[in-house]
Structures are given as structure tokens and as C-alpha cells.
């Protein structure tokens, strides 16, 4: 009876998935395949969008080798990594610190609701608008930041930030950090709140200090969420576009040109090198996939190591008790 019932309803499972599947095939899967295909062609210029040819067999990977050997692409890859690391390390550090504070039971801080709302706010505001806003804030020769610095006596004359490599990189990394630490903190806090409170109670009874509890209970239990944060932040970082594009158009001297800005510039300016841009996209896709798997495996690995260590510790403890 039950079997026939579930059988007769099965078709609705397929039926109700059709809109998703159709939209996915048309708007995601086909464009993905199309991007890969274009990477092997000579598509170039407006006419090249509808009238392109595959590269001759011996030169099939020419776009890929050209992109990989192009100094601007390599530079954009390095830039992207620099900007991501400059933003991620302070971001995760501050988020972890705030998480430890906000979840400490001994030192309950007040106004947490308010702080969460304010810290998260930059994350939800249009990134394009934030880039233009910061550009106005760092305006030269007179702008809010320059006026603040001279008033505080930190500098004698106005600084033209956007003409200097590291200050511009620093500002872009700061904007990313400023936009994301609140988000990361909220995710981590909710992760900590999901940890079994018994663990903390037991540790407290055993006289553990706050920092011991943080490193021995909170951190190991947060691992899955830290992995999630790391992977999403890395994928987001490798796709950075709005802020470096609008803050200074990848300049000075292409020092803040990320790979996505590179792809945009290849395809939609100059000589409209669609095929080359497609090849660069595929390369980025592969890099993202490899890095995600690597990070995932790293965590899996340390997971196993920790398990083994825990088992050894348990054995030792058991022996001690017996002895």
C-alpha cells in the first residue's frame, strides 16, 4: 500500500523540480559550457560574438597559454591574492576576538544587539556605492581623510593616496575587511552558541580559564564553520571586482587590478578579446576549484590527526586511571 502511494506521487518530485532545472540549464550550465568553448576560439570584437572559429588544432590552447604567460594576468592574480590576504587575516582575527568576547559568560558585554547591527551594516550596503564613497573620502588635495590626518598632526601635507601602490592596496583591503568582519563575527557567534553548553560547564567545574576554554573547546568545535568562512571568503576574494574597479580602476599601474577586473578589461574594452577573457575565466574557475578542494582536504587531514591525538590522550588517561 505504502509503496504504491509513494510511487504514484514520485512524478510530482520531477514536476516541481522542472523550473529550477530548466532555468539552471539555460542560464548557468549552458553559459558555463559556452565560456569553455569560447576559450578555444578566436572570438574577438563585436562581430566575433556571433562569428567565431575554433583555433586550428595545433594552436587549440593558444588563448590559455597566452593568458598564463601574460604579465598583466600574472600580476592580477598576485594582486588578487595580496588584496585577499591583506583583508582576510585581520578580518578573521578581529571576528574571532569579538566572538570570544561576545560569547564569554563570565564577562557579559552589554549592547551586543546594537554592536552586531552596526558592525554588520557595511556588508549590506551596495559595494559599488561604498567604493565611490571611499574615493570621495580619500579625495586629494582636500577630502575628509586628508583633513583628519592634517588636523591630527599625522601629516604635514595632503597625501594623494590613489597614486601610490601600497596605500591604494591598503585602502581596498581595508574596505573589504570593514565590509566583512561583522558578517564573519555573526556567523562565528552563532556557531559558538550551537556548541553544547555542557562542555563549558564541565570545563568551568574543572577550573579552566576563559582562554583555555576558547582554545580547547570553542576553536575545535568551530572548525566546520571556520572552513565554511575560509572557503566562501576565498571564493569571494578571488572574484573581487566592484571595489577595485570603481575605487581606482585597478590602478595605480595595475597594482590593484584583480583577475575579474582583468577579465572585464580584456572583454569589454580595447580590442574586445572575448576568447582570451573566456580562457582567463576558465583558468580562474580551475584555480578556485583546486583551492577549495585543497582547503577542504587540509581541514579533513587535521581533523583525522586531532582524532588520533584525542584517542591517544584518552588511552593514556585510561592507563593512568588503571595504574
Amino acid at each position: 500500500m505504502k509503496k504504491t502511494k509513494s510511487f504514484s506521487y514520485a512524478k510530482y518530485g520531477y514536476l516541481f523540480s522542472i523550473p529550477f532545472v530548466v532555468a539552471y540549464l539555460i542560464f548557468s550550465l549552458y553559459p558555463t559550457i559556452n565560456t569553455v568553448v569560447l576559450g578555444f576560439t578566436d572570438a574577438k570584437g563585436m562581430a566575433g560574438l556571433t562569428n567565431w572559429h575554433f583555433l586550428p588544432f595545433e594552436d587549440l590552447f593558444k588563448n590559455f597559454t597566452t593568458v598564463l604567460n601574460a604579465p598583466t594576468f600574472r600580476k592580477s592574480l598576485v594582486n588578487t591574492m595580496i588584496l585577499w590576504i591583506l583583508n582576510f587575516i585581520p578580518q578573521i582575527s578581529l571576528a574571532l576576538l569579538l566572538t570570544a568576547w561576545f560569547t564569554s559568560k563570565r564577562n557579559e558585554l552589554r549592547g551586543q544587539g546594537f554592536f552586531k547591527v552596526v558592525f554588520y551594516m557595511p556588508n549590506i550596503i551596495t559595494a559599488a556605492s561604498i567604493a565611490i564613497l571611499f574615493k570621495a573620502l580619500f579625495a586629494y588635495p582636500v577630502g575628509p581623510v586628508n583633513s583628519l590626518l592634517t588636523n591630527l598632526g599625522l601629516t604635514d601635507e595632503a597625501i594623494n593616496f590613489t597614486t601610490m601602490v601600497w596605500p591604494t592596496r591598503g585602502i581596498i583591503a581595508f574596505i573589504q575587511f570593514w565590509m566583512w568582519y561583522g558578517n564573519t563575527m555573526i556567523v562565528l557567534v552563532s556557531g559558538v552558541l550551537g556548541i553544547n553548553p555542557d562542555l563549558y560547564e564541565a570545563a568551568e567545574l574543572d577550573g579552566a580559564t576563559s582562554s583555555q576554554m576558547f582554545w580547547k573547546i570553542t576553536m575545535p568545535n568551530l572548525k566546520t564553520i571556520l572552513l565554511y568562512t575560509l572557503i566562501t571568503s576565498m571564493i569571494g576574494g578571488l572574484n573581487m571586482y566592484d571595489i577595485p574597479k570603481l575605487f581606482n580602476d585597478g590602478n595605480p599601474a595595475n597594482s590593484t587590478m584583480t583577475t575579474n577586473v582583468f577579465i572585464y578589461k580584456q572583454a569589454f574594452s580595447g580590442s574586445y578579446l572575448y576568447a582570451r577573457a573566456a580562457a582567463a575565466s576558465v583558468i580562474m574557475f580551475i584555480i578556485i576549484a583546486i583551492l577549495s578542494v585543497l582547503v577542504f582536504m587540509m581541514f579533513q587531514d587535521s581533523d583525522k590527526k586531532m582524532e588520533r591525538a584525542a584517542k591517544r590522550a584518552a588511552k593514556r588517561a585510561a592507563k593512568k586511571e588503571v595504574g
Binding site: S6, Y9, A10, K11, Y12, G13, Y14, F16, S17, V21, Y24, S28, Y30, P31, T32, I33, N34, T35, V36, V37, L38, I231, T232, I235, G236, N239, Y241, N260, I263, A267, Y274, A277, A278, S281, M284, F285, I288, S292
Partner: peptide, 27 residues
């Protein structure tokens, strides 16, 4: 519902969840 391709379909959703749209923008 219980249907044959349910498992693979859900696995596919998990697999493509993280793919950013910008990567396939040229196509």
C-alpha cells in the same frame, strides 16, 4: 516526494552552490 533522481539532484545543488556567476560571465 520520493523519486529516483532526488539524491543526485540534491548533490548537484550542493556542488554548484558555490560557483560564482562572474566566472561564467563571458559565455
Amino acid at each position: 516526494y520520493e523519486w529516483k533522481l532526488k539524491g543526485p539532484f540534491f548533490a548537484l545543488i550542493l556542488a554548484v552552490m558555490m560557483i560564482p556567476a562572474t566566472v561564467t560571465s563571458i559565455g
